[in-house]
């Protein structure tokens, strides 16, 4: 039980993507202008990551090493297609907003990275925990960044106004250059926090 918890929780802080584990940066910047789209893409990634981790872990001994990457890619791409079809059918507005970023989940390095580094070497329950943790960590990171960008940028959160109506949105953080700057500052902040906590640990 404790190992399952360990594999799950490492995705939430110790190796949280994309901050500690700088994988999957492109969507992190592209969809975090609004909390709703960040959450939508995050859910897609959780689904794909769990499916690919589970399947790869179940069938790991049947997949010959030499062709494992093509097999992984087929599995991931098919899961992404399912997400694409489902979203178009039931969440059309979200599908329109996310646009190209749904098919691009395929090339999100995070997913192939977990398949290669974890799922093909570990038992199913651990792979599921790993996928869930990493996916959840990724989603939370997206939502955190999106919260910052949406509140500062347009004074709303999840489409609801949270700042007084006289607040004039700071458009920079909603624009592409602002996305890079916000993520850079957030990574610096995380560097600072972990440097602080590590030096404390050494003192003990």
């Amino acid at each position: 039980m404790s190992t399952i918890w360990q594999e799950f929780s490492k995705g939430l802080w110790k190796e949280v993507p994309p901050f500690r584990f700088v994988l999957g940066l492109c969507p992190t910047l592209a969809v975090t202008g609004k909390v709703s789209s960040a959450l939508g893409l995050g859910c897609g990634v959780i689904f794909v990551l769990m499916v690919s981790n589970t399947l790869i872990s179940i069938f790991k001994q049947y997949i010959p090493g030499k062709i494992r990457v093509p097999v992984f890619i087929v599995i991931i791409a098919s899961a992404v297609t399912i997400v694409e079809l489902m979203m178009e059918a039931y969440f059309y507005t979200l599908y329109e907003v996310l646009g190209i970023w749904i098919p691009l989940i395929v090339v999100n390095c995070l997913i192939l990275g977990r398949a290669e580094a974890f799922a093909r070497k570990n038992p199913v329950r651990l792979a599921v925990a790993d996928g869930a943790g990493m996916g959840l960590g990724f989603t939370i990171s997206l939502v955190v960044l999106a919260t910052f960008r949406e509140v500062i940028g347009s004074g709303t959160w999840f489409g609801l106004s949270v700042l007084p109506p006289s607040y004039i949105g700071f458009d920079l953080v909603q624009n592409p250059p602002g996305a890079f700057i916000c993520l850079g500052l957030l990574l610096a902040l995380i560097n600072l926090i972990s440097a602080k906590t590590e030096s404390k640990r050494q003192e003990c």
């Binding site: 250059p177 996305a179 700057i181 850079g184």
Partner: peptide, 9 residues
């Protein structure tokens, strides 16, 4: 990464 991202911005 932080400085690379800020420069990119």
């Amino acid at each position: 990464f932080p400085i690379a991202l800020i420069s990119a911005g």
